[in-house]
């Protein structure tokens, strides 16, 4: 399934955590590609391995507990898994950047915004102190921060959460990376700020033709921003589909449940939102079969015993023995 246009290719990625006493497979055979200028969403409940996937791509897995045990991660053809740390360092922040969920704590509290932004540009682009400062200012203005000049001299605690996340975006894109990984970039923000921040990311993506991997548990965000979506459950990829197909015809029963749980505005009467019953199983005690079987209304004994493989279904791929709309309604 190699794709020559793809900027990022992740193939059969496996990540394990643990030590001699026992390992937990947090990411299990994940594959996807992202092309320049496109956005891939990774969706799932917390603990499903979506953040681990992004940290693995960045080479930021917590050491020594976490490690990539199999698979490949290629950024424009360069294999990243197993790349020495000093080469990774030159790629991080320059060719691929990452923004995190917690804008409140993601910036160093004892340095000014300007100092932190210039450090990144100077490190990768080799700019002079003054040129770095100018680039920082330009980027701050680009993400729509008012009084950008003054903000440069301020410390993170003097900025609001939305402002800080915009600083993060400015910093992440200051070296024109080809790949941006955004790990729940709007979760910690209030709703109006969320929309603005997503809009910023999209605008900059258009300008720089950046590929974006967006990690989120919010399907609303996915619908607005993504081109393609990977749904993860217990470290496994249960469905992968173009965004339209995912919302119009979800295949996996888990995806179906997630979409049904989105509040609809125009319901005539107040009804209880359907929820996906049960909770995510413990990664160290995964069942032998489909990991969603215990919560699935359609599961049978087969599902409990065998693991479904990812199979093509129209534009989607799904790992389910009883996918939605597979046969006419009984």
């Amino acid at each position: 399934m190699s794709n020559n246009d793809a900027l990022l290719e992740v193939e059969n990625l496996c990540v394990e955590f643990g030590d001699r006493r026992g390992a937990v497979r947090a990411v299990d055979r994940i594959s996807f590609e992202v092309e320049p200028g496109r956005t891939l969403g990774i969706v799932g409940e917390s603990g499903c391995g979506k953040s681990t996937t992004s940290l693995a791509i960045m080479g930021l897995l917590p050491r020594p507990a976490g490690r990539i045990t199999a698979g490949a991660i290629r950024l424009s053809g360069t294999e990243l898994a197993g790349l020495p740390e000093n080469r990774m360092r030159r790629i991080r922040g320059a060719e691929m950047s990452m923004i995190f969920q917690e804008p409140m704590t993601a910036l160093n509290p004892v340095y000014t915004i300007g100092a932190q932004m210039s450090a990144v540009v100077r490190r990768h682009a080799g700019l002079s102190r003054r040129a770095a400062r100018r680039r920082a200012l330009e980027m701050l203005e680009r993400v729509g921060i008012p009084l950008a000049q003054r903000r440069l001299a301020e410390y993170p605690h003097e900025l609001s959460g939305g402002m800080r996340q915009r600083v993060m975006i400015a910093m992440a894109l200051s070296c024109r990376p080809r790949l941006l990984i955004a790990d729940e970039p709007t979760t910690a923000l209030d709703v109006t700020t969320q929309a603005q921040v997503l809009e910023q990311i999209k605008a900059l993506q258009r300008d720089f033709d950046t590929a974006v991997v967006l990690i989120t548990h919010d399907l609303g965000v996915v619908a607005e921003t993504c081109d393609e979506v990977v749904v993860m459950y217990c470290g496994r990829m249960v469905e992968r589909a173009p965004v339209e197909a995912l919302f119009s015809a979800p295949r996996h029963r888990y995806t179906e449940g997630l979409i049904q749980a989105i509040p609809k505005i125009r319901t005539r009467r107040l009804t209880r939102l359907p929820v996906v019953p049960g909770s995510v199983p413990d990664l160290s005690e995964l069942p032998p079969g489909c990991c969603f079987a215990a919560r699935c209304a359609h599961a049978d004994t087969h599902c409990l015993r065998r693991q479904p493989a990812l199979e093509r279904m129209g534009p989607s791929r799904v790992a389910c023995f009883h996918p939605a709309d597979a046969e006419p309604v009984r």
Binding site: R89, R92, G93, F100, T105, V120
Partner: peptide, 27 residues
Amino acid sequence: RDHVRTARAFGASPVEILRKNVLMNAM
């Protein structure tokens, strides 16, 4: 701390991280 991870995500070297993110914050 989160900002240590941020610094790593932006390609800071170990010496830089230890000095700016770890030591200066532990002063």
